[in-house]
């Protein structure tokens, strides 16, 4: 089976709607298909990666820890847009760190998140074969 470049585009905040959660479910299932997978977080999608999510009082499932498992699924190209962070008064420190172990580098722990500009994000989109938006 041929390998395609899959890009999952996340532009919506978590909890207000189910899209972030169900998008993550697609990414986890899709990881088994050994495609070239990247995730894009832009616009309100950057809120999905916010640190310190606690959902006990709203009575919903807190799915933010699941993002930290992505590295174990070999999903380690996670692009976050700088301009989207800026527009929301956020920095990388406001997001939970996501890491993976690089098998080509003696399993060294590396950051999965890469902060990119709008122009770089546009190029990542341009290079994708299949773009899934939720």
């Amino acid at each position: 089976m041929s390998t395609k470049k899959f890009l999952y585009v996340n532009r919506k905040a978590p909890y207000g709607t189910i899209y972030a959660l169900e998008s993550l479910e697609v990414v986890l299932i899709g990881a088994a298909f050994e495609q070239d997978v990247s995730l894009a977080f832009l616009d309100d999608g950057v809120y999905q990666l916010a640190k310190g999510q606690s959902t006990e009082e709203v009575g919903m499932k807190n799915f933010s820890p699941t993002y930290r498992a992505l590295g174990d699924y070999d999903v380690n190209k996670i692009y976050v847009e700088q301009e989207s962070l800026d527009a929301r008064g956020l920095t990388l420190d406001d997001l939970q760190p996501l890491t993976y172990e690089d098998e080509d580098d003696d399993w060294a722990e590396k950051d999965s998140i890469k902060v990119v500009s709008t122009a770089e994000m546009a190029e990542i989109m341009e290079q994708s074969d299949v773009v899934m938006s939720f």
């Binding site: 585009v9 532009r11 919506k12 899209y19 994708s128 074969d129 299949v130 773009v131 938006s133 939720f134």
Partner: peptide, 8 residues
């Protein structure tokens, strides 16, 4: 076009 992206 090579791919379609929906801006939902």
């Amino acid at each position: 076009h090579d791919a379609t992206q929906s801006w939902l």
